[in-house]
Nucleic acid binder design. Structure first.
Lengths: 221, 221
DNA sequence: ATAATAGTGTCTCTCAGACACTATCGA
DNA sequence: TCGATAGTGTCTGAGAGACACTATTAT
């Protein structure tokens, strides 16, 4: 390694995959590109790191989602870094991708410039963003079977029936309600809130995620 | 987003965490830095992406390990990207980190410039490399409980007793030999090789990883 | 035969799925 | 009282750990 950098630097960007559930369908937040390349195509929200404003890449992703969707995501985590010569016609590039889970209600309340599109049946996307979204959905599905990730698709307070429905929608399988309740409550993943959800029928207890323990279970769902 | 990039580009590099087992101890391959910053300290092998020689970041990581350790790793996967202003005194930087598993025998046969150091009790390292190694070890430990990753710490052909020992060393726990054998063989993770390991006592059947199925199990180990 | 390592049979306990049951609300 | 949703009790079957057992080699 010499002191002088002999190689051109790759173009480095940050992109964000924001996932939410709308009417039981997993959706991703996209923008329509206004500049080349890929003008007019849908793309993930993203951009350059703002130095020194962004302390880290994660901060850059949070800023991008704050600007585009007007939300502070309770779940934001690095997905992976995608790279290569072919993904951007301007040249060799890399993009560090973060993935966020947001309840739909929060997105709607915030307004924001992202349009929600069901991840099943997306139109052609800019760059390699279709593959990136596939990777994010795979991560969500994979982690959902042994973690509390799907809870981040609900508001901070939720009933176990709602959580059960979200797990079923994300995993695409039926889960026995009784076993589900036991697993969730036994493992200390959630804690009971004081209030109850009142409605037309028997009120349901409300729960919230326990801080820190939200990520992984002892046993599979 | 304007057409002109208004922000300085971060310094982008690739680093590799090469892990192996030596006498039951998990070890990482390190070099001694010859240039500033951190001259004289131990560091992960790494460097700039060579454009256009490296087709992707993974190819850059493979090249770095080929140059420094003279090995082609059968397991090489992206770990995460680390970033920030503080990790490199030259300024805001990001490094895309790959993590590799190699059997010790292969490393020794290859020679190479990496020195193996037990991950328990490392001296101070350059940059944030201590935190990066922690992340790699956590990933290995976490994935080992439900995947065949530890098998990559053995040569392509191995006995179930050897695999059992490697799992115990990586996980740091005792595993029942009978249960272990059943789980490994029942799940189609390995397939029997034709040959057997001959020695001073009863010969053991040799196995290899089944291509594709190497990554994840139905049930925990 | 013996030592040593390889590999199996079988018991038990725990946990997940199935599903019938009870509980609590509004109308 | 009924309909609807919330939540529980209990049976059963699968799988993991424990551990005693058998198998196969060299010496």
């Amino acid at each position: 390694m010499s002191a002088v950098q002999l190689f051109p630097a790759p173009i480095a960007t940050v992109d964000a995959v924001l996932l939410t559930l709308r009417q039981g369908a997993l959706c991703v937040g996209l923008i329509t590109r206004e500049q080349p390349p890929f003008t007019g195509l849908l793309a993930l929200p993203g951009g350059y790191v703002h130095i020194p404003e962004d302390a880290t890449l994660e901060a850059a992703a949070a800023r991008i989602l704050r600007d585009k969707a007007r939300v502070e995501c309770r779940f934001l985590e690095q997905l992976a870094t995608f790279s290569g010569e072919a993904r951007d016609p301007r040249g060799w590039s890399l993009t560090v991708v973060y993935f966020a889970l947001v309840p739909e209600a929060e997105l709607l309340a915030a307004g924001g410039a992202l349009a929600l599109h069901p991840v099943a049946g997306l139109p052609p996307l800019a760059f390699d963003h279709a593959a990136i979204i596939d990777a994010a959905v795979s991560r969500l599905r994979g982690r959902s079977s042994y973690s509390a990730l799907p809870a981040f698709l609900l508001p901070p307070l939720f009933t176990l029936t709602e959580l059960h429905a979200v797990y079923q929608q994300v995993l695409g399988t039926r889960l026995d309600p009784a076993s589900f309740r036991r697993k969730i409550t036994d493992q200390g993943i959630v804690e009971a809130a004081e209030s109850r959800r009142v409605g037309a029928h028997r009120p349901a207890a409300l729960f919230r995620l326990r801080a820190g323990q939200a990520r992984s279970f002892l046993h599979r769902i």
